[in-house]
Amino acid sequence: MTTFYFVRHGKTELNVLNSFQGGGIDSPLLPEGIQQAGKLGQHLSTIVFEAVAVSTQKRAMDTATFILAENLNLDGLSVNYHDGLRELGFGDKEGMVVDFDSQQTQYLRTRPDLYDPSGFSGETYDELIQRLIPIIDRLEAKHPEGNVLVVAHGVVLIVLINYMIGKEKSDWRTNGPLENTSLTILNKKDEAWRLETFNDISYQ
């Protein structure tokens, strides 16, 4: 069975500023974020990954680079970058300080089934899932018995994880947000995805 190692990128400047940092904007890793990624790399240094799938946004690519720099089993490793793993798009709100009092922001954070970003040209949760699942399905099919590292973003990963373990759309943000450089491990048991590790930062 495929075992997925899901990792959120390291802490960035926009994370500290509580700004919308979606699929249309990037912010460099802070020194803390680089250190976090290196520590996670050390924690995973003996894991043999068959493949690595990374968002094409720089904060995720840099995080993956620092993780893999610590790995002891890189011979023949395939690293691929996917636009489909980019963060949820926040449209006109990209880079703005998060407006916590907005109803749509509350829906964004707690009720994906009610979230409607059309007023600011954002991406819907259904659109997000439609681009994520084909990537996961291809990785599972290509590496049915291997370990696959996926480095992406906070909303992307909490939604993907909850979707994979069978939660309804209204609960796709349950137990979020994920910590920066947190590790979540999923594998299958009786044809259902199960959490082995969730939002783990104990290695820090």
Rank of each mutant, 00 (worst) to 15 (best):
T3N: 10
V156K: 03
Y107F: 15
I185F: 05
N18S: 12
L77G: 03
L186F: 09
V7W: 11
I136S: 00
G89R: 09
P112R: 11
I161N: 07
P28L: 10
K39Y: 05
L157W: 07
G154R: 07
V52E: 10
M96Y: 07
L72W: 07
D83L: 11
V48R: 13
A69L: 09
L88C: 10
P144Q: 01
S19N: 12
A64N: 12
A37S: 14
K169T: 14
L186T: 04
A51I: 01
L74W: 09
L128S: 10
L114V: 00
L183M: 01
Y81A: 00
N180C: 05
S118T: 15
L114N: 02
R109F: 11
S118N: 05
S27R: 00
A51G: 01
G91F: 06
G119I: 05
T63P: 09
L44E: 04
E87Q: 08
Q21F: 06
D26S: 12
W193L: 08
Q36S: 14
E32T: 13
A60E: 08
L68H: 09
I201W: 06
H43E: 12
N15D: 14
S170M: 10
Q36C: 07
D171A: 15
K167V: 04
S45C: 14
V159H: 04
M164N: 10
A141M: 01
D137E: 15
P112L: 10
D190I: 10
A53E: 11
Y115P: 02
D126N: 15
F49A: 09
F120I: 10
A53I: 11
D101T: 12
W193Y: 15
H82G: 00
A152V: 00
R173C: 00
V156P: 01
Y81M: 07
R111G: 04
L17Y: 06
L68C: 09
D92A: 13
G122V: 05
S55Q: 02
T184K: 03
V54A: 02
P134C: 03
N18Y: 09
T124A: 05
A51S: 10
P28G: 04
L77H: 04
E70F: 08
K11A: 05
D171W: 07
I185D: 02
V150G: 05
Q103M: 13
L128W: 08
A53K: 11
E50Y: 09
T181S: 14
K167L: 14
F120V: 09
L178I: 01
T181F: 06
I158F: 02
L40K: 03
V150T: 06
V54R: 08
V148L: 13
F198Q: 01
